[in-house]
Design a protein around this nucleic acid. Structure first.
Length: 428
DNA sequence: ACTCCACAGGAAAATTGGGGTA
DNA sequence: TACCCCAATTTTCCTGTGGAGT
């Protein structure tokens, strides 16, 4: 029996396409329209090579403006030039987002051997901290810590983490550590504690959004590295650039679109990528983003989202918190899961709103009370599908739903004005 | 002006669970 | 094994609030 994977492999071989240059993890060699930023970074970091201490750097710019790629690129060059005397530690603060986890991560990055690694939990913060100081002292290298999405740290615990890390850079015996912070928000430094700000914000570099022309240059540059039999029409390339430019000058989006368009063309056996493929790619992109964010959700968030979907469908209007909670409890009962309290549900609904999976508006109906009206903006059915793909929800067959028939002050038919509120919200 | 609904959201207590230590 | 420490997650308790009804 032929291996079905082999078959797929053979089917694709004639194309001989290698699109890895367009993948999100690829760090290119050329950064069109970013010469100035690279130059500033190199200048700032070059004092390390003269055995001095580099100033801490802050990189500002919207997503997809090259901050992460360029800092990876520059620090890699630095590491090579340092010939083993420089250690670069890259931390994504969205994932590693507490003082504790960052310190543990740092300590483990400075471990040469596995047995030196410390457990991700259990130690006291003090113990991890002094361990870090010891390691910094022992390490005869200059350490550069890149904190990507550094704003997430402030969001969570108001800058304490940053203070601790900065303190570690001073407490380390030779103080041979500097920090590169990366953030999406220009106002990031304003919210900082003064003692943290002065030390962190020693030098800042701004990454302006790319415009459509610049994005086109970037795409062309990347295309140069592609071995492909697929021809990308200029109009398609321009469209990718234009969509990226509309999204606050997002190069990542433009590149992703180009890659997906090419993948679509290849799969459909076409030799040219035109505007139609780009539009298809944009749709796929959107649904993929939704799917991924749903799959990453914890169980109870999924159940709540399911409850929102079902409540909304059942009542044929946006659902409100009380209803969602009632139906959520029923779903939990159905699948034999202990339900969470009301307060927590309220919080999870806010989270879902932040992610963008639901849209909610708080509205007061006078005596009818004040509540959030919640709606799943798009693709309701596919969202429901994705939720039900969860293993723990596989036993879910459906439940008897409830809806509040008459919310005092709100007739069932008068949800028209609520729709209006949603519509005006979305145009913000 | 005052009431009162049905929540929102802050603060603090309680629970959970990994990991260390005696 | 029993027990302590700690961080993270949830619950409990609470005060606050927009605006229709009175």
């Amino acid at each position: 029996m032929a291996n079905p994977f082999e078959k797929i492999n053979q089917e694709q071989t004639p194309a001989m396409d290698d699109l890895s240059v367009l993948s999100s993890s690829y760090v290119p060699e050329n950064f069109p329209h970013r010469e100035q930023q690279i130059d500033s970074m190199v200048k700032s970091l070059s004092s390390i090579m003269r055995h001095g201490r580099a100033s801490n750097l802050l990189l500002y710019g919207k997503s997809g403006t090259g901050k992460t790629s360029i800092s990876r690129y520059v620090t890699q060059l630095l590491q090579e030039a340092g010939k083993g005397s420089i250690k670069v530690v890259y931390i994504n603060c969205q994932i590693t987002d507490s003082t504790y986890s960052i310190l543990v991560y740092l300590v483990n990055s400075l471990s040469e051997r596995d047995e030196e690694r410390i457990p991700p939990m259990g130690w006291t913060l003090d113990r991890v901290y002094s361990e870090l100081i010891t390691r910094i002292g022992q390490m005869k290298k200059y350490i550069v810590v890149v904190l990507d999405e550094i704003d997430k740290l402030i969001e969570k615990n108001g800058g304490d983490s940053l203070y601790v890390i900065l303190k570690a850079s001073d407490d380390g015996k030779e103080a041979n550590l500097s920090i590169i912070g990366i953030t999406n928000y220009t106002s990031f430094a304003d919210n900082l504690d003064a003692r943290v700000r002065s030390r962190l914000n020693q030098e800042s570099i701004i990454f302006q959004p790319y415009n459509a022309t610049q994005l086109r240059d970037i795409l062309k540059d990347r295309m140069g590295g592609i071995v492909s039999h697929t021809v990308v029409e200029d109009s398609a390339l321009n469209l990718c650039a234009a969509i990226g430019a509309r999204e606050h000058g997002d190069a990542r989006k433009a590149i992703d679109l180009l890659r997906i368009s090419m993948e679509i063309a290849i799969r459909e056996g076409k030799s040219r990528v035109g505007e139609a493929e780009v539009y298809k790619a944009r749709d796929k992109f959107e649904t993929d983003v939704i799917k991924e964010s749903i799959m990453a959700l914890p169980l109870h968030s999924k159940i709540i989202l399911l409850s929102v979907v079902l409540s909304q469908k059942f009542a044929n209007r946006p659902a409100y918190t009380g209803e969602v909670y009632e139906n959520y409890k029923r779903i939990c009962e159905e699948i034999s899961v202990q339900n969470l309290g009301f307060r927590r549900i309220s919080e999870i609904l806010s989270d879902l709103d932040d992610i963008g999976l639901i849209v909610s508006v708080t509205k007061s109906m006078g005596r009818g009370g004040r509540t959030r009206f919640i709606r799943v903006p798009d693709h309701i059915d596919s969202i429901e599908q994705h939720i039900l793909e969860d293993e723990q929800l596989s036993t879910f067959k459906g439940v008897k739903l409830t809806k509040q028939e008459k919310l005092s002050g709100l007739e069932d038919e008068s949800h028209q004005d609520i729709d209006d509120i949603f519509n005006s919200q979305r145009s913000d």
